[in-house]
């Protein structure tokens, strides 16, 4: 979106890029971009019904309860819904705290690497290692060391969310245009000034792209940690596991849907935030 305050001064000799498009066509575009996914959604629900009633026989219908059963048995059941929302709250807290810590550590890590080649050479392999080691394999160890509470869950979350922040921030800081670097060097800008006034703002689009991925991962991390620890106050992960074990499929489906919607909401929020912060000068749809 390009919301800019174009002054109403007399038009100059040269061509100016158009300001924000008028509201009406934009609304039409919005409708046009909502409609297809909506149709797909309807088709998916139809497919769901088809499988429930067409493919599965009576005894196996619990594998895929019809959507209306999910709504009536789980969503409209006060206690079930309440339990799920409380679990969602716990999971969300782990995800957000984990994400916040990952942001602080990840950015500091990337800035340190951007300041000197030798720091990058010494630390980057570990960022890559973080991405390569199966964090799930570490989860039991983390539980072993830090117990099975909030702390361990948060640590799992941080480990999972860290890499995209480190790599995207570093990439952003290093992808500054050479001419702009020359300009800063020419006028005697210190390293700190260059970081603050050039590298950091220039890296913003990449940082936000990384944040978005990391935010999605932090939700996954929070649920996975929960699912693995199977102890402590239940978050969405434990609920999902319990419902699975007890074959409570409408509840299971609702929990999964809530977890998915939460992930989507977080992802969307960071997209919106990116657009707010850098959308003025950068086309965020390019950064994915």
């Amino acid at each position: 979106m390009s919301l800019t305050d174009s002054p109403a001064e007399a038009a100059p000799d040269e061509i100016v890029a158009p300001g924000p498009p008028a509201a009406r066509p934009r609304r039409r575009i919005r409708l046009r971009s909502w409609l297809p996914p909506l149709l797909v959604f309807v088709a998916l629900v139809a497919l769901w019904y088809a499988i429930t009633y067409g493919v599965l026989d009576e005894q196996r219908r619990f594998l895929m309860p019809p959507p209306d059963l999910v709504v009536t048995d789980a969503l409209f059941d006060r206690t079930t819904l309440e339990r799920m929302l409380v679990a969602l709250g716990r999971t969300a807290r782990v995800a957000f705290v984990g994400l916040a810590i990952a942001i602080v550590i990840g950015m500091a890590w990337a800035v340190a690497m951007s300041q000197a080649r030798w720091v990058e050479r010494s630390l980057f392999p570990y960022a890559v290692a973080l991405q390569c080691i199966p964090i799930l394999a570490l989860v039991p160890l983390i539980g072993f060391w830090f117990d099975f509470g909030f702390l361990s869950r948060t640590i799992v979350c941080v480990l999972i969310a860290l890499f995209p922040i480190v790599s995207n921030t570093l990439f952003g800081l290093q992808s500054v245009d050479k001419g702009q670097r020359d300009l800063f060097a020419l006028h005697g800008a210190s390293r700190w000034t260059t970081l603050r006034k050039l590298e950091f703002p220039a890296a913003m689009p990449a940082i936000f792209a990384g944040l978005r991925i990391a935010a999605g991962l932090s939700v996954i991390g929070a649920i996975v940690g929960d699912l693995f620890f199977k102890q402590g106050d239940p978050g969405l992960g434990i609920l999902i596991d319990n419902y699975r074990a007890r074959l409570q499929s409408p509840e299971l489906f609702l929990a999964i849907i809530i977890a998915s919607l939460f992930g989507i909401a977080v992802f969307t929020f960071f997209g919106w935030l990116a657009n707010r912060v850098v959308g003025r000068w950068y086309d965020t749809s390019k950064a994915g």
Partner: peptide, 18 residues
Amino acid sequence: VGLTGFEKHLPRQLSGGM
């Protein structure tokens, strides 16, 4: 340079000459 009135514009709203 004759850019009075464009102080608040962003570079991407300007032509190459501007």
